[in-house]
């Protein structure tokens, strides 16, 4: 049997709905239609009244979820695309993220953001929003890169008593396959060594983990062993695992698909430089998308985001330093 990343998300939601009657899902076109990507396919029929079509009102969808959480529900909100969560931004960063701190009432909501670029999707159906949300205190930001993580981290997110921004990568939906969901091994907050190595560390997350692993495979032919750290959750960030890796390799490339100004990769570099400057044998490097909106045409899109080729190139420069 082969399970896709998208099936993992659907199955995790099935399991979350089955386990706990307080869970419900709210989002556009998620009922009968099963969602723009079919992440809720069939769930409405299996859980009547708990998988509901929402009006195109991202602000009110999140507001409703927060109110429901106050009353003991554990809502999952599906944004049709991560990009549209900007319309619900205020509720997410000001209402959900501050609720526990202000009132002592926890806010167990999970907001699913179909994130990242796919060819031909253009500026408004391709964004990665994790850095924006990670900036705000009071939110947990997870970015699963594997089928297993998509499944277990979504279940963990729904069970967590805090608001979780669940960034699921659209590029991985259909491409990524696994034989089973495996076991829940690592909790949210812990990174994983996706590929061991000793010469350089790539710290990355989500779809870029796979680009990094392929780049590492390529460099192996030249005799280099590149370690790839999959952050899994970007906030909290598992700095211990990052530093331990840099201690082994002495070289750091922070890799992300989102825009280059600030963000997760800048944070990774800042933490390593602050807490592990003495571990570095070379200046740390960052690789992100270009500093323009995300292009529509496949040719431009491929050049906008980091790819195996640009990651390999960056690593060569890092290794040569």
């Amino acid at each position: 049997m082969s399970l896709t990343y998208l099936e993992a998300i659907r199955e995790a939601q099935y399991e979350a709905l089955r386990r706990n009657p307080d869970v419900f899902i709210y989002g556009q076109d998620i009922g009968q239609f099963g969602g723009a990507f079919k992440a809720t396919k069939g769930l409405m029929n299996e859980f009547p009244g708990r998988v509901l079509d929402a009006p195109i009102s991202e602000d009110a969808m999140v507001g409703l979820a927060i109110g429901a959480a106050i009353e003991g529900s554990r809502p999952i909100v599906e944004m049709q695309f991560a990009d549209f969560s900007s319309v619900g931004f205020n509720q997410i960063v000001n209402q959900a993220a501050t609720l526990y701190w202000r009132t002592d009432v926890p806010c167990p909501i999970t907001i699913r953001l179909p994130s990242g670029g796919t060819a031909g999707s253009g500026p408004f159906h391709s964004q990665s929003m994790e850095s924006i949300y990670a900036h705000y205190p009071g939110l947990v930001i997870v970015c699963p890169a594997t089928v297993e993580d998509a499944y277990w981290m979504l279940l963990d997110s729904v069970e967590l008593d805090d608001p979780v921004i669940f960034c699921e990568h659209k590029f991985l939906y259909y491409h990524l396959k696994a034989d089973s969901f495996g076991e829940r091994d690592l909790p949210i907050g812990r990174a994983r060594i996706a590929r061991p190595g000793r010469d350089a560390t790539v710290v990355t997350y989500s779809a870029m983990v796979h680009e990094a692993v392929r780049a590492a495979d390529e460099l192996q032919q030249d005799g280099y062993q590149v370690e790839v750290v999959d952050l899994r959750s970007v906030k909290p960030m598992d700095v211990d695992t990052i530093l331990a890796s840099v201690a082994r390799t002495g070289r750091l490339l922070a890799l992300g698909e989102s825009f280059p100004w600030g963000g997760v990769t800048a944070e990774v570099v800042a933490r390593v430089v602050t807490d592990g400057f003495h571990l570095l044998d070379a200046p740390p490097m960052r690789l992100n998308s270009k500093d323009t909106p995300i292009p529509y045409h496949t040719q431009l899109w491929k050049a906008h985001r980091p790819t195996v080729a640009t990651v390999t190139d960056a690593l060569r420069r890092l290794l040569r330093y």
Partner: peptide
């Protein structure tokens, strides 16, 4: 922003 939040409180109670 409180309109939808109060709505959500009612919504959850009804669902429960």
């Amino acid at each position: 922003s409180m309109v939808s939040l109060v709505s959500g409180m009612l919504f959850a109670r009804r669902m429960q």
